[in-house]
Nucleic acid binder design. Structure first.
Lengths: 165, 165
DNA sequence: TTATCGTAGATATATTTTATCTCCGATAGT
DNA sequence: ACTATCGGAGATAAAATATATCTACGATAA
């Protein structure tokens, strides 16, 4: 039970994209170089982020990525879902239907009509996490960061990403 | 991001152990046979459940497992932690410390003294799930099941497990 | 025209998950 | 004391997933 590193990479990258003007972009090359991570690996995640409508891309020279929606409409959960997929954390194998004393051709209603209670609990547990992650947006993250991180550093970051404009 | 099947196996097994008297046990063989799952694989999970103090074992002929604590003190989270381990879902790689513009020998306080915000959010998200799963105990599950599942079937299950006494 | 970009796919490696098997020590029943 | 039955630990292996890189391709700005 682990989130992939792609979630971490993605969130950090999206944070750098917050300050990008609507007519500008940042390339994978810069995003990878700035954080010292693999360029070709990072692009995998941006393909997923694009498919989910979180970022949009501009091909060709001077191309790159920018956010596709307002920061208030991009939540941590959106990113998790984009990278990890929409499959629930818990896959119920319905093992109860294999109980040896059951007649497989005439399963009782409790085993077919009503859902597996264990399954329901796990789904609700995921829903609890989802609810929290949906409440944390990129807008919130950016404001927290600008409040807690040294302004000089933030300015230097913006300058670095726009150094070739 | 998936829970292992061991969590599902374990929870179903623990449910069958609820009705077992203090001086009785159920063997892995029966638990596996009743649910049609692998015997040797199931025993792996019971070793973990034992290490966490959720079940206790009796070796030798006529041996087996029984619950080591009251059902009210065994939560879904206890089982998840026993099977999946205690590692947090999100491992922060502190990628922010690799930012290219930083002097690696003199990192700013914001990057060393204060924790990574993204990390904090993910930890809190896990805490939300944990809190919910801690609130759901084996006692609760058993009472829900006895309310929703046909009494005849429940009795037949108990009879099957104690058929050789 | 050319260099720079994202896109898609193939490929390779490492790790984790799932699963089985074997040998060992403990114990109940004979 | 003997033996069949149990859990415990460890080795092993196949399958799935995560991590990572590379190449060929098409689009675009200069």
């Amino acid at each position: 039970m682990q989130f992939s590193v792609g979630v971490e990479y993605s969130l950090h990258c999206l944070l750098y994209l917050v300050d990008v003007q609507d007519d500008r972009t940042i390339g994978i090359k810069d995003l990878a170089a700035y954080q010292g991570v693999s360029e070709s690996y990072l692009s995998k995640f941006f393909t997923k982020l694009k498919k989910r409508g979180i970022v949009e891309s501009v091909p060709g020279a001077k191309g790159g990525y920018r956010l596709a929606r307002p920061t208030s409409e991009i939540s941590f959960w959106d990113v998790v879902e984009a990278i990890e997929g929409s499959e629930p954390f818990f896959k119920c194998s319905e093992v109860r239907q294999n109980e040896i004393i059951l007649d497989k051709n005439h399963l009782p209603d409790s085993h077919t009509k009503s859902p597996c209670l264990i399954h329901l609990v796990m789904l609700e547990a995921e829903a609890q996490m989802k609810k929290y992650l949906q409440s944390k947006t990129l807008e919130w993250l950016a404001s927290e960061v600008s409040a807690k991180v040294d302004g000089t550093h933030l300015r230097a970051t913006r300058d670095w990403f726009s150094r070739n404009l």
